[in-house]
């Protein structure tokens, strides 16, 4: 196990990390967009049922790293990846593995809410339908469960069959979360999920994340250091494609081990 060793060596102040069982393990991961290297030799482990945050200035590779975990980078031309990623113990680059199966286990919520131009019900039922759920009663059960889990049920229960695009921005983002958890993934990736929302909607999503971590392993990319400090259990700081520091959130924010981390969280650059 290279990952945890490295974490201990870089963040000695996080002894608890080894005790947590890892859900996602990243080993010596490098990524190139054409000739440009975007991620450099990253090794880390994401613990199960915890919220892990990636912070860092724009262009540092935090979204790229997140999108490696469900292989969304496959969709971009000219991407080259080295190193291994294991989710729940399986190598996600195994040629025998179906990428759609991986994405069913690793859900994703995007920066800009992107509900389908369909009804609220159809949005939440989309994933289960892809998985082959046909029965109306089953679908209704799944939709209600996931909308409740995303704290949206009470607001939309009377208009499930109206267009999802009629919802407010915060509601749309919670619908996207409901849609992602309707297929009951193991991991939920969130790529700056609140950057387009107002503070109240942001607070609701943050509450939701804390509630959801009992059932899901959450990885979040955020621009907002306060958000990372508020909601996450572990934080990784990336700079120029390199994982500078990774450890328990409180530790990283109060007592950073690296000079660059300190400069970033105190606002000297970024």
């Amino acid at each position: 196990m290279v990952g945890p060793t490295r974490i201990v060596s870089e963040a000695p102040a996080a002894p608890g990390l080894l005790l947590e069982s890892p859900m996602v393990e990243i080993e010596r991961l490098s990524l190139w967009y054409g000739a440009k290297q975007a991620l450099r030799d990253i090794t880390m482990a994401v613990p199960k049922h915890r919220i892990t945050a990636y912070i860092g200035p724009s262009g540092c590779g935090k979204s790229t790293l997140l999108r490696c975990l469900n292989r969304m980078n496959d969709l971009i031309d000219g991407v080259r990846i080295e190193g291994t990623i294991r989710v729940g113990g399986t190598d996600i680059h195994d040629p025998g593995l179906d990428v759609t199966d991986l994405r069913k286990r690793v859900g994703m919520v995007f920066q800009k809410s992107n509900p389908f131009p369909k009804s609220i019900f159809e949005n939440a039922a989309y994933g289960p339908r892809i998985l082959g759920v046909r029965s109306r009663t089953d679908l209704e059960g799944i939709v209600e469960r996931s909308l409740r889990a995303a704290a949206l049920w009470d607001e939309v229960r009377d208009r499930l069959h109206e267009s999802a695009l009629g919802l407010s921005g915060g509601q749309q983002q919670r619908l996207c979360i409901a849609r992602a958890i309707a297929v009951e993934p193991d991991v939920l990736l969130m790529d700056e999920p609140c950057s387009a929302l107002d503070p109240i909607a942001t607070a609701r999503i943050e509450e939701l994340m804390v509630e959801l971590k009992a059932g899901y392993t959450i990885v979040i990319v955020t621009h907002n250091m306060q958000q990372a400090a508020r909601v996450s259990d572990y934080t990784g700081f990336l700079l120029l494609g390199e994982l500078v520091e990774y450890g328990v959130t409180r530790q990283l924010f109060t007592n950073p081990g690296d000079r660059r981390t300190e400069d970033y969280i105190t606002g000297r650059f970024g």
């Binding site: 199966d101 992107n114 389908f116 369909k118 892809i130």
Partner: peptide, 24 residues
């Protein structure tokens, strides 16, 4: 983002095209 959302839910490209892109 609409197409990405569908792909991220484990839909194949064909499923995305038929179920999301075509109706839209």
């Amino acid at each position: 983002g609409t197409r990405e959302a569908s792909l991220a839910l484990g839909a194949t490209k064909l499923e995305t095209t038929l179920r999301v892109v075509l109706p839209a």
